[in-house]
Design a protein around this nucleic acid. Structure first.
Lengths: 81, 81
DNA sequence: TCGATTTATACGCTGTAGCGTATGACTAAT
DNA sequence: ATTAGTCATACGCTACAGCGTATAAATCGA
């Protein structure tokens, strides 16, 4: 299973979902990767100016990785707005 | 087909590959998304502090999207270093 | 070979991420 | 109700992304 995302908001939501699923608090996750709880909070909020490294660190801590592929024909509801 | 990446460098390389494949210069691509040629250059160089939005903009212009999934057991050579 | 295109890099500027530290709001469990 | 845990948000700070502009350096094509 994999989840796709085209916006910072979607990526943030995805990180939050996974973090919760794995039973971490923002603070715990931040600790693992050397980021403040506040930084994790902003990442999950979908701040577009977040540093790429911050996202990558979070994904690493969650044992996730990015794949890039051609855009699928939008099954994605959010795209309608 | 999809390409996976765990580091900013890998993502940058991936963007460059796709951009070239689609026949754009850095300037052309930047133009499409309102970013300077210099900014695209740094993104492709794998600057980790690049803004998430910059990557997302580039992917959009290239008609790509991000997928996130569990890390696959490393078939990835780069991981060895 | 030699112009033309492309890419890396520079300078000075503005805006803001992430930092340490701290707190208020919300939730859950006793 | 009180306590503990979680998360959003704040202040002042430093570092640097991305901006416009500009120019070497590298690459490409005729």
């Amino acid at each position: 299973m994999s989840q796709s995302a085209r916006t910072a908001k979607q990526l943030g939501a995805l990180v939050r979902r996974e973090r919760r699923r794995q039973g971490y608090s923002q603070a715990k996750l931040g600790e693992k990767i050397g980021l403040r709880q506040a930084t994790v909070s902003k990442l999950e909020a979908g701040e577009p100016a977040t540093q790429l490294q911050t996202l990558l660190d979070a994904l690493t801590a969650l044992n996730l990785e990015i794949t890039v592929r051609e855009r699928s024909k939008s099954t994605d509801l959010e795209q309608l707005f």
